[in-house]
Amino acid sequence: MFRGPSVPAISVADVKDGAYLLDVREDDEWVAGHAPGAVHMPMMQIPARIAEIPADRDVIVVCRVGGRSAQVVAFLQHNGLERTINLDGGMQHWAAAGRAMVSEDGGAPRVA
């Protein structure tokens, strides 16, 4: 079974407050619920917006379960952004761990 590229990963428990989180999910997923302070950049926009991603600090890339974010980490590392790390389990693990979430639609935050 294809499990995606082998990239550095971090567990939700190891993400420190104030970490740079790059959420690569689609707009509807972001609106439903995301980590406070995360930066939203849908996966398909990454190539055109790569200059917006900091190269001088760790960037934790997150999606729903970790597959899309692993692909983004592989792409970013291939393009010189070596301090990118995949969030293992994505927002599903984030929510399950009870980490803070906010929504953009006025409802209770959720992983969509």
Results as ranks from 00 to 15, higher is better:
S69D: 05
A74D: 15
Y20E: 03
K16E: 11
I85F: 10
A74G: 03
A70M: 11
V31S: 06
G66N: 10
F75C: 01
P42S: 08
V111W: 00
Q77T: 06
V61L: 14
V7Y: 10
Q45R: 12
V39T: 15
D14W: 11
W30G: 00
G98F: 14
V39Y: 10
V15A: 11
G98I: 13
D14K: 14
T84H: 06
H93E: 14
L21D: 04
M43N: 05
F75Y: 15
V72W: 07
A35D: 01
H93L: 11
A95E: 03
M43T: 04
A112C: 08
D56Q: 06
V12W: 12
D58Q: 12
G89H: 06
A32F: 01
D56T: 12
D88T: 15
P109L: 02
V15E: 03
E82G: 12
D27C: 01
V102C: 01
H93N: 13
L87W: 07
D14E: 15
R99F: 04
L87K: 03
A9I: 14
Q45W: 10
G66L: 03
P54T: 11
L81Y: 09
P5W: 07
A55L: 04
P5F: 11
S69R: 09
V73F: 04
G4C: 14
P47R: 07
G106P: 00
E52Y: 08
R25Y: 00
G89I: 13
R110Q: 02
L22N: 07
E104Y: 02
A48Y: 13
P54I: 13
A70L: 08
Y20I: 12
P36A: 10
I85N: 04
E82V: 10
V61S: 10
I46W: 06
V39W: 05
I60C: 05
V39S: 07
A97E: 09
G67A: 15
V73E: 04
P109N: 01
R68G: 09
E52L: 07
F2I: 05
E29A: 01
M41R: 13
G80S: 09
V111F: 01
W30Y: 09
R99K: 15
H78F: 05
A55I: 10
A38E: 01
A95H: 13
A97C: 09
C63E: 06
R68Y: 12
R57P: 03
Q45T: 14
Q92K: 08
R99T: 02
L87N: 04
G18C: 08
G90M: 14
L81W: 04
E26H: 02
N86W: 09
D58C: 04
V72G: 02
R64G: 01
V72N: 03
M43A: 14
G4N: 13
Q45C: 08
G37T: 06
A32E: 00
V59Q: 06
R57M: 12
A74Y: 07
L87T: 06
P109T: 02
A48I: 07
M43E: 12
A48G: 14
I10D: 03
V7F: 13
A100K: 13
V62A: 07
E26P: 02
L81C: 10
I50R: 05
W94R: 01
